Simulated assay, not measured.
Amino acid sequence: MKSEEKKEKEPFHALAYRVLGEKIEALIPHVEDLRIALRKAGIPISLRAYASMMVFTSIVVFIAMSTTISTMLYAAVHNVYAIMAGIGIGLLAGAGTFWGLYLYPSIKASSRGRKLDSSLPYVVSLMAILASAGIPPERIFRSLIYADAKLHIQDEAREIVRDIEIFGKDVITVLSERAMYSPSKLLRDLYEGLISTARSGGDLRRYLYSQARMFMRMKRVMMRKSLESLAMLAEIYVALLIAMPLVFSIMLAVMSTLGGGPINPVMTLRVLTYLAIPLLSIVFLILLDSTMPREA
């Protein structure tokens, strides 16, 4: 019964690796950069297993899309070109899936780095308070495991404590390794500063307090820039998606009463209303989402 339950709960990447296994060895050198990206993204999957999942998922998507699209097109037009078109669409879908899975670890690492950068002033302030109480670095990182989930530091602290307590590594070695795979440049700089302070016998409390003040200043500057960007985007939105459609609507209404000339005012107004404005709104929302910080 237990072996059956284990088989039912087998992760998808493990299934892909079991199916493909050594068949993708030739691919590994071409995706070697994913090894660091997976570590930075916090994805606990080996490079070979993830590469197997990429190939396996792409094949599944290709087969599913080719079969579905070819069947639908052939039923509609009864032509052999429909099957070829379905295969072509399936190839595009499979290639898009492979490329998307290839980019996913980097995107997740970037998102994780932004969250860490946003919460770092509060994390370092907490570390400075603990250091001022005479708590050693090992226990400081253990305390961070139980910090507020909004600080996004629990996974980092958990891996540091694991390496120290289970694998028996010293703090300097662990911080050096974490700095190498940290998705946040600010956190990487903090680790390197902690290493330098420990090696030189410096005052840990003073270093953490100075870093906390510096990170807080950087956060204030970043929030000020975000507000300025938001004000600029608001002006663009009013001009592009409120004022300009009104002006065009009035112009087209006047043109329709005067005959319109070579331009069809009604068709142009429909394109503006049902296509241009929604597309511009989607582009604006994507721009706003990528510009504004998600964390306060």
Results as ranks from 00 to 15, higher is better:
residue 2 K to T: 11
residue 228 E to I: 15
residue 161 V to N: 02
residue 82 A to H: 00
residue 195 I to V: 06
residue 109 A to G: 11
residue 195 I to H: 06
residue 114 R to Q: 13
residue 169 K to Q: 08
residue 117 D to C: 09
residue 63 I to K: 05
residue 120 L to Y: 00
residue 58 S to C: 04
residue 103 L to K: 13
residue 94 G to S: 08
residue 75 A to V: 06
residue 145 I to V: 08
residue 165 E to V: 00
residue 248 F to S: 07
residue 261 G to N: 07
residue 237 Y to C: 10
residue 54 M to S: 03
residue 162 R to E: 15
residue 54 M to P: 05
residue 89 I to R: 06
residue 86 G to Q: 08
residue 124 V to G: 02
residue 156 E to K: 04
residue 6 K to E: 14
residue 167 F to E: 02
residue 104 Y to P: 06
residue 277 I to V: 12
residue 15 L to E: 12
residue 143 S to N: 14
residue 48 R to E: 14
residue 5 E to I: 03
residue 158 R to I: 04
residue 296 A to S: 13
residue 257 T to F: 14
residue 224 R to V: 13
residue 79 N to R: 03
residue 136 P to Q: 11
residue 83 I to H: 03
residue 276 A to P: 11
residue 22 E to W: 10
residue 2 K to Q: 10
residue 21 G to M: 00
residue 177 E to G: 02
residue 288 L to I: 09
residue 181 Y to G: 00
residue 97 T to I: 12
residue 294 R to E: 15
residue 199 R to L: 10
residue 48 R to T: 01
residue 189 D to P: 00
residue 212 A to V: 05
residue 185 K to V: 00
residue 31 V to K: 07
residue 158 R to K: 13
residue 274 Y to M: 05
residue 103 L to P: 12
residue 169 K to E: 06
residue 21 G to D: 04
residue 49 A to G: 03
residue 5 E to A: 07
residue 201 G to R: 01
residue 286 I to Y: 04
residue 249 S to Y: 11
residue 121 P to I: 01
residue 202 G to W: 04
residue 218 M to Y: 13
residue 216 M to C: 01
residue 28 I to P: 10
residue 133 A to H: 12
residue 268 T to P: 04
residue 24 I to W: 01
residue 52 S to A: 03
residue 255 M to H: 05
residue 62 F to N: 03
residue 99 W to L: 14
residue 33 D to Q: 15
residue 259 G to S: 05
residue 159 E to G: 06
residue 43 I to R: 10
residue 27 L to E: 14
residue 246 L to T: 08
residue 29 P to A: 11
